[in-house]
Amino acid sequence: MTVTDAFIHPFPEGDSTLQRMAMTARECGFDTIIAVNHHPCEYHGVRILQGVIVTEGTMKAVTNAIRQKKRAIIGVAAGDASFNRNLLKTPGLHLITDLHRSQRNAFDQVSAKLAAEKRIAVHLDISQIISCKGHSRQKVLARYAELLLLQRKFGFSFAIGSGAKSILGQRTVGEMILLTSLFGMTEEETVTALGTIPDLFLDTSRPRVIS
């Protein structure tokens, strides 16, 4: 089974190069990583996928990214409720990110149903639990717990990532399981979420053989 770290930020954005982060990812138990703004390749037995995060908050920027980066995992930072619903209807999108920053009603049951239907995953950034303290960490944990409730009811996918900008920010699979348990995720749910990305990346327009 594939174990993917969704979104790492290597050099020049961070202080560690892609190869070094790939080495660390292998030691941490990952076999795939999504590197933001890096070309797909393979280092030290770790498959590296290209990732794009659209933060502009406009549909124009989203459609441009989908058109230009056809072989990339595309994540879009969430906005208000109407923007998120429009996003979830956009073909070619893989992930909706930064939901902890959006308002509570920005991702409701309608959005959850749409995400499950269109096979768009919700990205959970573990670095937010590590880097935030006090009230902001409580907000992140509460938001993730709400998303988990919706996920259990409507069955959309989660994608978990360390959001690391350095090898010191990367976490092992075991640590990911511990940190996600803080908002009530079980071990099975975390392992499933870590294996979500390859399913999303399959080209759904092509016919597939289902054994």
Partner: peptide
């Protein structure tokens, strides 16, 4: 042990220096 390991995984820096503690 679980609580301790989780807290160790959540450590990011000591005295402003970025560190990582792996169980």
């Amino acid at each position: 042990e679980k609580e301790l390991c989780c807290a160790i995984a959540a450590i990011r820096s000591i005295n402003g220096t970025q560190v990582r503690l792996t169980t």
